[in-house]
Design a protein around this nucleic acid. Structure first.
Lengths: 103, 103
DNA sequence: TTTATCCGTAAGCTATAGCTTACGGATAGT
DNA sequence: ACTATCCGTAAGCTATAGCTTACGGATAAA
């Protein structure tokens, strides 16, 4: 996130990015890789440097995803406001016992 | 997140939530606590049950936060498009050595 | 061709997010 | 009063996200 924020101030090379952050350059590289895989940033070679910039298309996609999320959440609240006889009966005795195992 | 999604389908008691998810009830309780601390859900006692529902105010806040984030990111791209003589000089020799320590 | 710079990747370590089990308190039914 | 249900919290464990160090390959400058 912090890396992404920095990139949002303009395209930067890896070592510049690392210079402004409290982590090593390889750490930054690793983060950039996942951001790139997620389509949120793009890169281009520039001499020995590799310049990264935010990718508007990826951002738009993620944003859309979130927007649907908010809509769903708020809509759910709307519905729940209607009186809606929540008549949940007591059920027949189940204590903490788990049903799915997880080694 | 999964918990929040479930809650978005309507208010629910803790044990109901846990019933639909692959984790134990206490785990759900713990998640609900952080969601509540974050102001994203609210709760109300209902007999021995505690019913949780999404909190529109908290959601709106988070949403606004994200919206500023997107705006910033996209705006940054706009700027970077202008030719902008990126004339970064080579600097004077710094290899990987870290400068901030972290025990 | 040698040396400095910039990078990515792999291996190894560590802090911790997120789980489970265990317990006790509170309410409702009998 | 006793018992079943529903819940929160604490303690302990484990998988893993995210770091560092170490290395080698590529470009640029000399």
């Amino acid at each position: 996130m912090a890396i992404f924020q920095k990139l949002a101030t303009g395209p930067m090379a890896v070592h510049e990015l690392a210079g402004t952050l409290p982590v090593s350059r390889p750490a930054v590289s690793q983060h950039l890789r996942v951001l790139k895989d997620a389509g949120l940033v793009s890169d281009s070679k520039r001499g020995t440097r590799r310049v990264y910039r935010v990718n508007p298309a990826g951002i738009a996609l993620l944003r859309a995803h979130f927007d649907r999320f908010w809509a769903q959440a708020l809509n759910a609240f709307e519905v729940s406001v209607e009186p809606h006889t929540t008549d949940t009966k007591r059920e027949k005795y189940v204590t903490d016992r788990r049903r799915s195992s997880r080694k």
